[in-house]
Design a protein around this nucleic acid. Structure first.
Length: 322
DNA sequence: ATGGTTTTTACTGCGTC
DNA sequence: GACGCGGTAAAAACCAT
């Protein structure tokens, strides 16, 4: 049965080919029009009236129709399924753990050892490869965010070191590359004494604040990063320059923070709020005009907080002066 | 989970330009 | 009348437990 079918198909194919060759000569039995061969659907059809002269040779086409290449890819069931969950789309090699060959027979001990070595190396290459890609993407992100925030070169380097450590300690699974990269930048900026607030980070990052703080806490804990609470003074120069204020204001602001520190009202308060308030208060003292809303804008802190802090700061400064 | 602290949001009244 | 500022209450966020 199989044989005859094959034979017949072959014959028909040959015939079809012949027909193709003799296309011009062979006329349609119905209308006398020209015959055309549709190899994809295994038919010989009359070009004029559409009469199918021959069919059932072999349909080489898929049973579905696609109208563009994208659809073709989607509908095709040929090839391994791919997944976006894995960096290599699941296309990498896996070596089975059973010591059996393709027929299910056990392997000789020599072969077994060989396969074991292959498994080891395959795994090594695969993970190394995945980490390389991961790192490459992360470093790109770190670079992008750093320049968006105007952070100096050394911060970028620190950030990538932190990221590499996180990667080496397998802290990535379950967390997004972007999240860890952002957290690394945040940590690096703070370590370098040029802190950016979480708000500023989340503006340039693709992850939201929640995830950022979670991830940040996590990597600080896991990597035992020693990060002192941000010093309000480290924000002052940036705020002052963003507001086009003089060095005098900047100096006064530092003094105010210093007095506040002595008065012990810094602990528990957000450093950003303190810095913003000190800059505002200092500008007031120096008769340089800034509004609370302007300060709150550049510091991304609420005006209420600025009011509360700067009252406290001024009080503390008076007490100390007296 | 909870409670205490800080920050934010939203709204109001006052004085000034 | 818009603006800057000050204040308040309640909601939300944060943090240590």
């Amino acid at each position: 049965m199989t044989d005859t079918t094959t034979l017949r198909t072959q014959e028909q194919t040959t015939e079809a080919e012949q027909t193709t060759e003799a296309d011009e000569k062979t006329a349609c039995p119905e209308c006398g029009g020209r015959l055309e061969t549709d190899t994809e659907h295994g038919e010989v059809v009359c070009g004029d009236c559409g009469l199918v002269v021959e069919e059932d040779s072999i349909d080489r086409g898929p049973e579905w129709r696609a109208f563009d290449s994208n659809e073709r890819d989607n509908k095709s069931r040929v090839g391994a399924p791919t997944t976006k969950m894995m960096h290599d789309k699941g296309l990498s090699t896996n070596i089975g753990w059973q010591d059996k060959d393709a027929y299910g027979n056990s392997l000789s001990s020599r072969q077994r050892q060989k396969m074991q070595r292959l498994r080891t190396w395959n795994e090594r290459f695969r993970t190394r490869d995945s980490k390389e890609r991961n790192l490459k993407q992360a470093l790109g992100e770190i670079d992008r965010m750093s320049s968006a925030l105007g952070l100096p070169e050394n911060v970028r380097e620190t950030a990538s070191v932190i990221y590499r450590r996180a990667l080496a300690e397998n802290l990535l699974p379950g967390r997004s590359i972007e999240g860890v990269a952002t957290a690394s930048v945040y940590a690096a900026a703070r370590q370098a004494g040029v802190p950016r607030s979480l708000d500023e980070l989340s503006v340039v990052s693709r992850v939201d604040r929640m995830e950022l703080t979670r991830t940040y806490r996590y990597i600080v804990r896991e990597l035992n990063l020693e990060i002192a609470p941000a010093d309000p003074e480290s924000y002052i120069p940036r705020f002052a320059s963003d507001l086009d204020l003089s060095d005098e204001v900047e100096r006064r602001a530092r003094d105010l923070v210093e007095d506040g520190r002595e008065a012990g009202l810094l602990s528990g308060k957000s450093p950003v709020g303190l810095a913003a308030a000190s800059v505002y208060a200092a500008a007031l003292l120096c008769n340089e005009k800034v509004t609370q809303s302007e300060v709150s804008e550049v510091a991304s802190i609420s005006e209420v907080t600025i009011r509360n802090r700067y009252k406290e700061l001024l009080e503390a400064a008076e007490v100390i002066a007296a």
